[in-house]
Design a protein around this nucleic acid. Structure first.
Lengths: 141, 141
DNA sequence: CTTGTTGCAAATATTTTGCACCCAT
DNA sequence: ATGGGTGCAAAATATTTGCAACAAG
């Protein structure tokens, strides 16, 4: 229901900034990016897109269902491509790397708990903040 | 380990702003408050504490382990008394009311998942955003 | 007294917006 | 050509900080 394959079907014109940003999410090795991160990557590549446009495009993409917005512990919003498969996140406190996971048991328990409390779940966010110290972290810093 | 009962044991002098804010968390019916919310409540009660001080006190209390900070979907931080019992949250999208819950199964699954991915959990946050429509919501608006 | 604490205003950080100009259709 | 899109600078929002005055122990 919520993932038009392209810009047109979302009612958005195919402009350079939009194509560049979308391409970044599709090709970058880090699936999770912030507005400033995107701005920096684009400028490093010689693409001059204003920070204001990055923010506008991210908001439009989120509303179009192309992107998902996350609020990790840092103050800035982080976005990722919405591939339609819900998942939760492990955020590494050492290197900021984000790992995804999905657990049927956790999903089921949440639904039951919300129901028991008289609520209808709209969505949820589960972030595990952890350490990759004992792990072969790809982004060790 | 992380919940001194009073200000002194946290190395903080007993000042009026600190006592007022602590008392607010202990007596207010809403356990979850933002800096601005605290500022407004204090001023409605004729207590003149500057917003800067509210922020400073909240940060100090958090570092002393007296308070826990949360990042719900809104941009502002929300705090609650740290009573030492970890729990997760259901946030009502209709009335902003926050309900707490704890589930052994979810906790266990998280620990296992993190281990399977090679991480050591530092902490985690699970927020369920829901609707109290079919429920007798105490803060219906 | 002495050091920590507060208020105020200015500074940051992140994100949004008004407006004139530009580009995709 | 025309309505949406963009850049720039200013505004808005949330939070932090420098500094002089002040209060707790």
């Amino acid at each position: 229901m919520h993932q038009p394959k392209n810009l047109q079907s979302a009612g958005l014109k195919s402009t350079t900034p939009r194509l560049k940003i979308l391409s970044l999410f599709e090709n970058s090795k880090e699936r999770h990016l912030s507005a400033e991160g995107i701005y920096n990557i684009l400028h490093s590549s010689g693409e001059d897109v204003s920070l204001a446009t990055v923010y506008r495009v991210l908001t439009q993409f989120e509303q179009a269902g192309l992107l998902l917005r996350h609020h990790f512990e840092s103050e800035k919003s982080v976005f990722e491509l919405n591939l339609g498969k819900h998942h939760d996140h492990i955020v590494c406190l050492q290197c900021d790397h984000v790992e995804e996971f999905y657990d049927t048991a956790i999903e089921a328990r949440q639904k039951k708990i919300a129901a028991d409390h008289g609520f209808t779940i709209h969505e949820h966010s589960l972030y595990i903040y952890a350490d990759c110290t004992k792990r072969n972290c790809p982004n060790k810093r």
